[in-house]
Design a protein around this nucleic acid. Structure first.
Lengths: 192, 192
DNA sequence: GTCTATATTCTGATAGAC
DNA sequence: GTCTATCAGAATATAGAC
């Protein structure tokens, strides 16, 4: 599905519905029957679009990784540590805001990564995550650095994807997440 | 189960096992069969200790709320805003460290609260959480305040409960979580 | 306190008609 | 592209023996 467009075809609606139900019940707690019911189709119709439940999980995870990876790569090309951190943080926050529930889902539910990993050979989350973390902490991180980044990434993703902020506009949410992120990383305040 | 003691009786071992499996697979993704298998007993034996799966969830959630509630109450009795924040933060972090996986589980998995809520009439999580948030932000919070506290509580709970830090000792973990928390809340550094 | 055995419902998944 | 029908296996839960 492309930018901001509303999903019309069944396949896209199916993925949106899956994300919603996965968020509420977890991947392993969501049955294909639940997805089918929510869409008003039968289980067999779901199987027409995806061969297995794992394939649905993979189709959700893989595009997200495909978006995060270049952000991290671009960040590592920056010359100063400060610029690297700024780019990685801005990119990560932007992804959270644009995908809302999705990034939070991947961090909350280990089941979606297990499921996606069973059918796909796309780059693992662990890989991309390790690179993202290194952007934030630099080489030779202290234990404090590592824990701070854990808190940062998890906190941002979960808060940004929270239903409570579902109707906060992108611009506002992005601003607040960035502010909090910069504070945690000890970066100076930015002129908005 | 009492402080630091190892669970010997089946009921306590059952609860420990449930927390572990709930964390990995989500409450709705964990079957009583999985719990029974992990314990080396039969499903029927599990039913002897708990009437339903919801009852297990409730027995996990309720004691945690019983620990968090007085912390928030005590904090609100402090006179200065600074002392209130310090007390609430120290208490919250202490709970995360002592219970590790548990606090993170409650934040990650909506299913455990749904399940617990079905069998129990104990004070709701929403209630206690609202009070905790108010301790951190004070009256008349700005949207920025609210989002910051969201990031703080979720980040601390998830990072503290992460398996990666399972063998970091309590003292160290508590120190790092407190540092990050104080930074996010804009509190001055403390002499350790 | 744990077991076997059983009833019932639901799961993921497939085959084949429209 | 969606349907009905069907499968083997696993789910929650109960009854009753040891």
């Amino acid at each position: 599905m492309i930018v901001g467009a509303v999903a019309h075809d069944t396949r896209s609606r199916l993925l949106d519905t899956a994300v919603k139900l996965f968020s509420e019940h977890g991947v392993e707690g969501t049955s294909l029957q639940m997805i089918a019911d929510e869409l008003g189709i039968t289980k067999a119709a779901v199987y027409y679009h995806f061969k297995t439940k794992d394939a649905i999980a993979d189709e959700i995870v893989t595009p997200l990784l495909a978006e995060l990876n270049p952000i991290v790569e671009e960040a590592s090309a920056r010359r100063t540590r400060g610029a690297q951190i700024d780019h990685a943080l801005a990119g990560f926050v932007d992804l959270i805001v644009r995908r809302r529930a999705l990034v939070g889902l991947m961090i909350r539910d280990p089941g979606i990564l297990r499921a996606a990993g069973r059918t796909s050979r796309s780059p693992t989350v662990a890989e991309v995550r390790a690179k993202l973390y290194m952007m934030f902490v630099g080489p030779d991180p202290t234990p404090t650095d590592m824990i701070t980044v854990h808190i940062l990434t998890r906190g941002l993703a979960l808060a940004g994807g929270d239903p409570e902020y579902a109707d906060v506009d992108d611009e506002t949410l992005r601003h607040h997440l960035l502010e909090a992120g910069r504070r945690l990383l000890g970066r100076p305040r930015r002129r908005t």
